[in-house]
Design a protein around this nucleic acid. Structure first.
Length: 816
RNA sequence: GCCGGGAUGGUGGAACUGGUAGACACGCGGGUCUCAAAAACCCGUGGGCGCAAGCCCGUGAGGGUUCGACUCCCUCUCCCGGCACCA
């Protein structure tokens, strides 16, 4: 028997598969159902890391399993090739971003092949390829034409380290998601996608995503942040200005005792002047406008300045003082808030800090609150008081009633507000898709016409960051002609957020060589939506929300029929080391490729899949503590190797009934497990079958049939060893990866003898072997004749017999 | 604070709709082989008592429902993730 040598057999089969073109997606229109298995396309950062190994091992098992179960599988791969690291690496090492990116792609492609991933390489593309970003730009133009891409001056998140703006989604705890630098606030004119137009649909359609992890849905719901309430119009007594506020509690309107504007609110300067309180207000506004947004949000300050004017409460005509204060944010609602200190904690603290009256208008039943003795706001339900026509109404129900009443009176209306803000897509960096817009002195923002696409990113650019877009320094790029009038104009020099690239790449895979459109709608109809999407939770909001948005826009453009791109999503856990995320700087980095070289790709794949449920984190330090020793599953592969070889070399006279049954039971169990992506339990069942084969072989029985089934079931998980055993040892002419998945005989998969548990008063007292089809009578009989059970019963009387054939009998006695 | 998810041997984890808790592994202990070691193979391995048969305890803590609870309900503790002046 040969030794198991992964370093020999793995490269061999990789080459054979490539020659046989085994994984090319079949566009044939045969009966087989399609299956689109998609892994989030990776950023080419250098070489594969352990996170890739885990995610792609799972995705590959899904794709291979679907293929052998009779699907036409599309399992593509490509590269998220634009982005800051390329530019930063280039600045540091003086290599052009393009060269750096392509070198990394080559390296990672080699590694993916070495890992045995069943990708259809013929569909590969890079998002930095002009043939791809041409269509990213084309889509931008379509968004622009539909009013979904627009430019505005707005306070933006600026990362001083990366020298670019960031989307809200890319700011984590006030810091840049990428580099961790504290983000500062900067007023800039930037391009946005109007994702807020789709807020409600993004929320509603989540009900159809039943196969998404709950936490991802929760995160998206929180991010969209729908809240229901009412808009109410207040008038400024001194100036007659009308100001809208949004409130979730219109039922507390009679409790308003002051009114607050955000620092950025457009009326503040005018009102401060009208109220003759100029200096103090101007000082506060000036100081806060200079303070980074995030610092301000974290301050939880209750400071504020009186504007000297008053707002008229539309429900009772009362005049209340107006303030400007940092605790009101321009970014949410209308940038102005009615102050109800009795029923909102922030308003309560503000009122106490500024000596403002507190008016209770919601009373909890039983324990009435009084403005003088309250120590905190009461924000639960209760009965409305001091509220004119609404006195006596119960508060949760009264919210809608008050909103309807406001509408009748013409002073407001029921309204919905979202936390979600428009997606800021412009970046002041070089390595991205140029925004295809020309600024004409006469015609303003003009989209580059289709013939002008792609707007090619020039190579000869000084891309060192300097606060403005590097492209702005490139004369040849900047100077353009207005597509409308032909006069000299200026090209837009910002590039797009790379999340724009990744918002539609999965459409491109369906027809990657399409030259006249981003994708062929016919091909998309054939393959999409994606049947199984695999990737990390870090994209729970960013990429997945943007992609859902894009799909809905494409739907509205009539380009696709569906509205959700990824009906099924699975998130792999992270691979960590010693309880902490792996990193070079921490010195705890374990890279997959050296392990692949030493122990084999199959060992790496099985190690990550066997470690636990796919979505759980894996601590490599616990799974493979000694780098000099092979991970545990390697030993199993050796046992499989030996067992299959022995089965062929020393065929027995007759296959043992026991082994045949074990094999069929395994087919049943592994099929169910793989259907539900439970790789760890599937592998465990294959191990049990291997152990059963060992026992049969040691008893001199024939195990060839079981060997064949074992190898077939191993194929999606450990494709190399399965192929070697299938073709070279078992002598099959064609690939195991083309062989239809085995079926099982339900009669054989059934256990024929089972252990009947005999309990007395709920405690296990005996185990008895019975036929699997034993009836209630036989089970009761077996239990009552059990020596151990009789002993446990003693002289007590059995008052109840719980019989659940053929698994359990519980004898319940008196005196308990 | 709000929302979501967890807590099972020395370790990773298993237990499908309430019915043998700890499958399968790793580790550890013992053994076979060997001059020796590694590898490989075999046996054992939740805790306690016992020569044994067996008994008691045991799924974060406490309570409840049930013939029977890791699983369902209530209260609490801790851990992880997300959101957080969102009006």
């Amino acid at each position: 028997m040969r030794r198991y040598e992964p370093s020999e057999i793995e490269p061999k089969w990789q080459a054979v598969w490539e020659r046989e073109d085994l994984y090319r997606a079949d566009e044939g229109h045969d009966e087989r159902p399609k299956f689109y298995a998609l892994d989030m396309y990776p950023y080419p950062s250098g070489d594969l890391h352990m996170g890739h190994a885990e995610a792609f091992s799972g995705g590959d098992a899904v794709a291979r399993f679907a293929a052998v179960r009779g699907h036409r599988v599309l399992h593509p791969i490509g590269w998220d090739a634009f982005g800051l690291p390329a530019e930063n690496a280039a600045i540091k090492r003086g290599v052009a971003p393009k060269e750096w990116t392509h070198a990394n792609i080559d390296q990672q492609r080699r590694s993916f092949k070495r890992m045995g991933m069943s990708f259809d390489w013929s569909r590969q593309f890079n998002s930095c390829d002009p043939e791809y970003y041409r269509w990213t730009q084309w889509l931008f133009v379509k968004f622009f034409e539909r009013g979904l891409a627009y430019r505005k001056l707005a306070p933006a998140n600026w990362c001083p380290n990366d020298q670019t703006v960031l989307a809200n989604e890319q700011v984590v705890n006030g810091a840049c998601e990428r580099c961790g630098t504290a983000v500062v606030r900067k007023d800039l004119t930037q391009w946005f996608f109007k994702i807020t137009d789709y807020a409600q649909r993004l929320l509603d359609d989540m009900d159809t995503l039943i196969d998404w992890p709950e936490r991802v849905l929760t995160m998206q719901r929180n991010w969209i942040g729908r809240s229901e309430g009412a808009e109410v119009e207040f008038e400024i007594a001194e100036t007659g200005d009308r100001v809208e506020v949004f409130t979730t509690r219109p039922d507390t309107l009679w409790g308003v005792t002051f009114f607050v504007f955000a620092v950025e609110h457009p009326l503040v300067a005018k009102l401060a002047a009208a109220g003759a309180s100029g200096d103090a207000a101007a000082e506060l506004v000036g100081r806060l406008r200079a303070t980074p947004l995030t610092n301000r949000e974290q301050a939880e300050s209750r400071e504020g300045v009186r504007l000297g004017v008053h707002a008229v409460n539309p429900v009772n005509g009362e005049k209340v003082p107006c303030f400007v204060a940092p605790y009101v944010l321009m970014e949410y609602g209308t940038g102005a808030v009615m102050g109800v200190p009795a029923h909102d904690q922030r308003d309560f603290e503000f009122a106490r800090a500024h000596g403002l009256p507190i008016q209770v208008v919601i009373q909890p039943p039983g324990q009435p609150r009084e403005s003088d003795t309250m120590t905190e706001a009461y924000d639960h339900e209760g009965v409305m008081v001091n509220s004119g026509p609404f006195d006596g109404q119960r508060s949760p129900e009264s919210i809608a009633a008050v909103a309807a009443w406001l509408e009748e009176q013409g002073r407001g209306r029921a309204a919905v507000t979202y936390r979600l803000r428009d997606w800021l897509i412009s970046r002041q960096r070089y390595w991205g898709a140029p925004i295809p817009i020309i600024h004409c002195p006469e015609h303003g923002e003009v989209a580059v016409p289709e013939e002008g696409l792609p707007v090619v990113l020039p190579d000869d650019v000084d891309f060192r960051p300097g606060g403005e877009s590097p492209l702005a320094r490139h004369e040849g790029f900047v100077n353009a002609m207005c597509p409308t009038c032909g006069k000299p104009a200026r090209r837009e020099t910002d590039t797009m957020d790379t999340f724009v690239d990744s918002s539609w790449y999965y459409f491109r895979y369906c027809s990657p060589n399409e030259e006249s459109r981003p994708f062929d709608p016919e091909a998309v109809r054939r393959w999409m939506p994606v049947d199984q999407y695999t990737g990390g939770v870090e994209h729970a909001i960013l990429h997945l929300l943007y992609s859902r948005f894009f799909t809905k826009v494409l739907h509205d453009m009539g380009m696709v029929e569906f509205t959700e791109p990824f009906p099924r999503l699975m998130n792999q856990g992270q691979v960590i080391y010693g309880g902490a995320s792996m990193s070079k700087s921490k010195g705890n980095l374990v890279e997959p490729m050296p392990i692949v070289e030493r122990w084999g790709a199959d060992t790496v794949r099985l190690t990550v899949l066997f470690a636990g449920p796919f979505e759980d984190d894996i601590d490599w330090a616990l799974i493979a503590p000694d780098p000099e020793r092979p991970p545990g599953v390697h030993g199993w592969l050796i046992r499989v190797w030996k067992a299959v070889n022995e089965a062929v070399e020393r065929p027995g006279a007759e296959e043992a009934e026991l082994l045949r049954r074990a094999a069929h039971r395994t087919v049943k169990g592994v099929t169910e497990d793989l259907d539900r992506f439970r790789f760890n339990t599937a592998i465990s069942k294959l191990m049990i079958l291997t152990n059963a084969m060992r026992a049969a072989l040691d008893a001199g029985e024939d195990a060839r049939a079981a060997a064949g089934l074992l190898v077939q079931m191993l194929a999606p998980l450990a494709p190399f060893i399965a192929e070697e055993l299938w073709r070279e040892v078992l002598g099959n002419p064609a690939s195991v990866h083309l062989r239809p998945w085995p079926s099982f005989d339900p009669e054989l998969a059934r256990e024929e003898r089972v252990t009947l548990i005999v309990q007395v008063d709920g405690r296990v007292r005996d185990r008895v072997e019975v036929d699997a089809d034993a009836g209630a009578d036989a089970c009761r009989e077996a239990a009552l004749t059990s020596e151990n059970a009789r002993k446990a019963i003693g002289d007590r009387r059995v008052v109840r017999e719980v019989v659940r054939p053929p698994k359990l009998v519980n004898l319940v006695t008196a005196d308990r």
